[in-house]
Design a protein around this nucleic acid. Structure first.
Lengths: 196, 196, 196, 196
DNA sequence: GATGAATGAGACTTCATTCAT
DNA sequence: GATGAATGAAGTCTCATTCAT
């Protein structure tokens, strides 16, 4: 029976949302328990500590993006531009539904210097993301240029997510995606022109 | 001769660095006291609460940027490109010296949903920044386009600051500035071309 | 067999005694914890704050008097004089056992101007007391006169409780009760005489 | 020049009012300083400690009552009833002007079991009061009866002061005084009758 | 597996007090 | 005499964590 498994995942989902919006230190085990209909003591049946819970949250999120989002970057059945569009769409969906906050970025900023254990899963996530974009971009850019553009893209999106949250205005994210798509498509044309 | 007295501004500076690197909730009044050679109780001689101290930190930082950095955007004695370069240089200086963390962004992400009092000073800071860049850009862009480019620039730099911190790699920030400068200069040429 | 657990009511009883003798501000959560064999932090498992605990203490005491003491005022199976005697006896018992201090009066005096939240339960207690006495007195006095005599009686007893505490001499309370009983009985005779 | 003396007395007066309404523990040295236009540190030029200040407050109040109020009890130029009226008038004045709180009673209740140093001045005050009333009453009562009536009178007035404060209703005090005067005058008539 | 009681460390804050200027 | 900076003890409260039931 998958009952237990589901419950554990529920805790992770609730914790993810709380960590995302309230941050790591402000979110208490009682908050998490409340959100799941559990007492805080009961959360310890599933996770040995708050840090452990956070690690699992980061892992689940990393896996989710790798398996359900970034994977599309490598899907040959779509054009590069199309794949870029899909990635953008999916991350907008997640960011915007999740009240415009990126767990990875927020936890990175809050805990980078105080809970070093979280660094690796966070870096892994961003590695995956940059690699995925670089793979798409390598269609029209050199290895080197694709990588830099990928990094720039991630910066642009994360910066936009931050502004979106500060100003409570979703347009930042849309603008960022449009900018990236535009730049990529322009590269396309230039590539076409120069290849003539 | 006065005994070495702690200046209020010293506390603000130390607090700024601690808040920037450890975050708001993880930084304790004892940490701040320690950094100034004071007991935690003594900090209350200057600030009525931790929140109050943070408010003053945000205010000081906002004022600093407005008066010492963004002000160059409006300095007629330099060309637009030159002014853009100066702004970039100054913020790199601050970010990088400050161990690569942007207090405004970090606190925004950590406290946006839990300490609404901090929202206004943070927004004010970003308003100042966007306005300054938009003013420079309006030299070669329409009002509308300048504003959007300014927002994109801030996003790019903040995203880069985040990546810099996560990967402990200062090149992100340099790349972001180079990209912005490049785009602005290209606009220059295009403007020249189209004005022919 | 359950491990000896602290009952919520135990905490209330211990707190009542401490508040009564040491006052509200001087009594600490650690004092209360100690008196119950708990750490100060553990008291918060039962009460959300010191003020909340005090509110419950006041409520319990008010309920106790209403249900276990003042209720006798309305018991038809005894004569008015007898009911008055019972009330006096019971309150002497409580006051004297409680080391001669009236929690309600003490907390009223200490917190009247600084913790307005306590005013209502305190007034409710004194309302109950005056009403109970007035009901007894209405047997031989007009509504109006009974009410005033009831108020005077409460004043006399509370004043006596104060003097008892200051001089550590229980006779004040006995004297006050004797005076009240005497006055009531005299009214009886006068009533008899005037009814001839 | 009596400048200094006056200032010290100012502090005592302000402290008296604060202690009376807020209680001993809740009143801070900063409160007292504020009320005098001093910083809290400066109060220590006049009093070695908060306890010391309170002791002086109690002493001043005791002296005031002894020299300016109770002294009328022994003034041969008025009848006993007149002297009783004067005492009542003066204490109503003080109580009611002083926002209906009796410093002596309040501090007695709050500190009886925790600051034994205050007991003696408080007892001295009440001794003075009882003696003064007993002296008046001895005009028409036996030594013994006068003393008991004096104690009852003090109880009645203090109880009334308490109720006045709890209900914010000055009539309690007036009623108490009327009751005492009435009882004394009745004794007068009875004495006259029995002396026939 | 869940509960709720309990812990203990540590957070923010207050405050009487001291002292150099 | 007054100030303001500083102290240190203590107070209220929070919270991750443990554990018997």
């Amino acid at each position: 029976m998958p009952v237990k498994k589901v419950e554990k995942f529920d805790i992770i989902k609730q914790a993810l949302n709380l960590f995302r919006t309230q941050g790591y230190h402000k979110t208490t085990m009682a908050n998490i328990g409340d959100a799941c209909g559990l007492l805080k003591g009961s959360v310890y049946h599933y996770f040995s500590s708050k840090e452990d819970l956070m690690r699992e949250v980061l892992e689940v999120l990393r896996d989710h993006y790798r398996d359900k989002v970034f994977i599309y970057a490598y899907d040959d059945s779509h054009s590069a531009a199309e794949r870029l569009r899909i990635l953008g769409e999916k991350s907008i969906e997640v960011f915007v539904n999740g009240e415009g906050a990126c767990l990875m970025a927020n936890i990175a900023m809050e805990t980078n210097d105080v809970v070093p254990e979280f660094r690796k899963p966070i870096r892994d996530f961003f590695d995956d993301w940059v690699n995925a974009l670089a793979f798409i971009y390598s269609d029209r850019y050199s290895q080197e240029a694709a990588r830099i553009f990928a990094q720039e893209s991630v910066c642009a999106i994360e910066g936009a997510a931050m502004m979106m949250r500060i100003y409570n205005d979703k347009s930042y994210l849309l603008t960022a995606h449009a900018m990236i798509m535009g730049k990529f498509e322009k590269a396309d044309k230039e590539a076409l022109i120069s290849s003539k």
